[in-house]
Amino acid sequence: MGNGFKTDILDTVSRKLGPYVLLFGCYMISYGHVSPGGGFQGGVVLASGGILMLLGCREERIEGLFPLSALSLAEAFGFLIFLGIGIAGILFAGFFLASPFGSPIESKSVIPWFIYMLNMVIGIKVGAGVGLICIALLQKS
């Protein structure tokens, strides 16, 4: 990543604003089952917060801040967990991504926890994936 155009303003803003953007992304993922947001939107906000922090740091700190191997593992495990939840729905309820914890007729309190769990998995997967894409694009420039 070329830091030829890095300024003190970019450094200061990214260090101060980045953690708040990451926190807002976590909020969007966590409360997406009861408010606007969810796993996909929160994951993109998480990735944008990470990229904002990367824009302000020095070249040698980038790998230490967000290791590419950790992001790759998070994306792969997010996909596998999502696929496992979907297959569990097939096995226990008869169709993909159905709640394996019981039918909605039996217990209405199960559905919000199931959607919350899906939001968390999707948020991790999307955040890691978009973060990897952005890092790859920034390294090419």
Rank of each mutant, 00 (worst) to 15 (best):
G2H: 12
F5R: 14
F5S: 14
T7Q: 02
T7V: 08
D8M: 13
I9H: 04
I9V: 15
I9W: 08
D11H: 14
D11Y: 13
R15D: 12
K16T: 13
Y20H: 12
L22R: 06
L22M: 08
L23M: 10
G25I: 03
G25T: 01
I29L: 02
Y31K: 14
G32C: 05
H33V: 09
V34F: 05
S35L: 15
S35Y: 15
F40Y: 01
F40I: 06
F40W: 02
Q41I: 06
Q41F: 04
G42R: 02
G42V: 03
G43D: 02
G43K: 02
G43N: 01
V45S: 02
V45T: 09
L46N: 00
A47H: 08
G49K: 06
G49T: 00
G50N: 06
G50T: 08
I51E: 14
I51D: 09
L52C: 07
L52K: 04
L55P: 05
C57M: 08
E59P: 00
I62F: 07
E63C: 00
L65W: 02
P67D: 09
L68C: 07
S69E: 11
A74E: 15
E75R: 15
A76T: 13
A76M: 12
F77E: 12
F79D: 08
I81S: 01
I81C: 01
L83C: 06
I85Y: 01
I85R: 00
G86Q: 03
I87D: 00
A88E: 06
G89Y: 05
I90Y: 02
L91F: 12
F92K: 15
F95S: 15
F95P: 00
F96S: 01
L97H: 08
A98P: 00
A98Y: 09
S99P: 07
P100A: 02
F101T: 09
G102H: 05
S103R: 04
P104K: 04
P104E: 09
I105C: 00
I105Y: 10
E106Y: 06
S107M: 09
S109W: 13
V110N: 15
I111F: 09
I111Y: 10
F114S: 01
Y116V: 00
Y116E: 07
M117G: 12
L118N: 07
M120D: 11
M120Y: 12
M120W: 12
M120P: 02
V121Q: 02
V121G: 00
V121L: 03
I122E: 00
G123D: 13
I124E: 15
I124T: 07
A128R: 06
A128Q: 04
G131I: 04
A136V: 07
L137F: 14
L138T: 11
L138E: 09
K140L: 13
K140P: 01
S141R: 15
S141T: 14
